[in-house]
Amino acid sequence: MDRLKIATVWLGGCSGCHMSLLDLDEWLFELAKVADVVYGPLVDTKEYPAAVDVCLVEGAVANTEHVELMHQIRQRTRVLVAFGDCAVTGNVTALRNPLGSAAPVLERAYLDPANLRPALPHEPGVVPPLLDRVLPLQEAVPVDFFLPGCPPPADRIKAFLQELLAGKAPHLTGANLRFG
């Protein structure tokens, strides 16, 4: 069998889901026997490769760069997984949504506490503008599977990946479906 191409991506999230992935400890060696990690914060690749088998997406869609990247990823990926609560529900990243726009949080972070030259970050082409409404992944692109948890515990990630590797559609139940 061909080796599986796995990618991970880090959008609007705290990287906790990626930390939990590393918590798989020695099982990562098992994974490495059958799959290559071809893209993500743990790999030094700039361009998202073509024909990726599985992509785990951590975080919510929070800025314009995330939107573009996700459209590209969706086109180049067979199985797209919303990885963790921020991707599945918006979670903490979407706490600002009831405020109606990105302006109140930007002002709170960059203007209210600043003593010297208060200014909002504005670097077109370098700093992507925030969306007014943070989106759970499935509101931006079609998603194949959902892996909830903040973060999903390593055991849950393992149960999920094992089913995928066995060629089955992962079906989490009971405690493995707990949000938070």
């Binding site: 919303a82 609560d85 599945v88 529900t89 979670n91 903490v92 979407a94 706490l95 949504n97 009831p98 759970p136 499935q138 998603v143 599977f145 959902f146 909830p148 903040c150 989490l172 139940t173 009971g174 405690a175 479906l177 707990r178 949000f179 938070g180």
Partner: peptide, 28 residues
């Protein structure tokens, strides 16, 4: 707005456990 990860009832909530037992993996 339900954000279980930062909720006082996380882990002891009837709504959260209903979601678990009824197989709700996301909100469509």
């Amino acid at each position: 707005n339900h954000v279980c990860a930062v909720c006082v009832s996380n882990g002891h909530c009837e709504l959260q456990s209903l979601a678990m037992h009824l197989g709700m993996d996301h909100v469509s």
